[in-house]
Simulated scan of single mutants.
Amino acid sequence: MPYSIAIDGPAGAGKSTIAKAVARELGYVYIDTGAMYRAVGLYCLNNGINTNDESSVVASIKDIDISISYDEEGAQQVFLNGENVSSKIRTQEVGAAASTVSQYQPVRDLLVALQQKLASKTSVVMDGRDIGSKVLPNADTKIYLTASVEERARRRAKELMEKGETCDIREVEKEIEERDYRDMHRENSPLIKVPDAVLIDSSDLTIDETIDSILDIVIKR
């Protein structure tokens, strides 16, 4: 039977980095669900679709094909209508678009079905906002990974600067707070900590310490 690990938490908590490492340690497949929503956001931006116009976004779904594959090193590659967009989806603009389109139920229905199909075939580590609550409610291990807004903003700013992008740390903090509010208050599948999830606050933990904490939880199950 495939084993599933669900990691939920707010933007900038390090979910992707941690989930990738945990999957690598266990020999599981890592699935970045946020990348799928980013692909929808990118499609809308590229095609002049107003992400705040739900009817226009939903109408475009029929023209969107998202698929996932893995390179030789096991890194997830996201394809949008046949094009590898793995690097294009990592901008702040696309992130904001993803946060908006993820509020629409038809978009969620499309991507959740794809995510569940992947998890039914192989052992996975999946991260996102509603994995433990909606996507994999019967996951074997559920983690809620968070960190303070200040620490998440510091990490995100460092990440952007390493990519050569300029940023204002206060602006990044503001964007994270706004993203948290949207994610936690959206009507469809809001970000929540489900009762059976283990809370890990990584504000004062290194990446390795956070990974070890999760592996310890999995081993004890």
Rank of each mutant, 00 (worst) to 15 (best):
N84E: 12
T51M: 03
D204C: 11
D196N: 15
L136Q: 09
E25S: 15
V124K: 02
E171D: 15
S87K: 14
N52T: 10
Q76K: 01
G27A: 10
Q76G: 03
D183F: 06
Q116G: 15
S67H: 07
A39E: 06
D109G: 05
D183L: 11
V112Y: 06
G27L: 10
G48V: 02
L45G: 10
E159Q: 13
S16Q: 05
Q116H: 04
A157D: 02
T17G: 09
D168W: 00
P137D: 14
T210M: 04
S55N: 14
C44P: 02
E173D: 09
G95H: 03
I66G: 02
D168N: 15
D196Y: 01
P195N: 14
L191C: 08
V22M: 06
G132Y: 04
L199S: 11
V194Q: 07
D183I: 11
A197Y: 02
Y3H: 07
P137G: 12
D63N: 15
L42G: 07
S203M: 04
A75N: 15
R152Y: 09
Y28T: 12
G9W: 00
R24T: 13
M1Y: 02
L145K: 02
A19V: 09
R221E: 14
Q77F: 10
A13G: 12
D140C: 05
V112E: 09
K134I: 14
E177I: 12
C44W: 01
R221M: 11
M126R: 04
I219F: 06
Y70E: 10
P190A: 10
I214W: 00
S69K: 13
S202P: 01
P137T: 14
K121F: 09
I217M: 10
P106H: 01
K163N: 03
I49Y: 00
V85K: 01
P2C: 13
N47F: 04
L160C: 05
I219S: 13
L111G: 07
M1G: 12
R129S: 13
T146K: 01
S55Y: 00
A98D: 09
V78G: 05
R221I: 05
I131P: 02
V125Y: 08
T33W: 01
T17C: 09
I89L: 12
T51G: 03
R182L: 15
K158P: 04
E83P: 02
I217V: 14
Y28E: 06
D53A: 11
T100M: 11
A23Q: 08
V149F: 01
K193W: 06
H185Q: 14
T91P: 07
T51W: 00
V135E: 04
D65M: 01
Y104R: 03
V57N: 03
G9M: 02
I61R: 06
D216N: 15
K121M: 13
V194A: 07
R179S: 11
D109W: 00
G95K: 03
D8N: 07
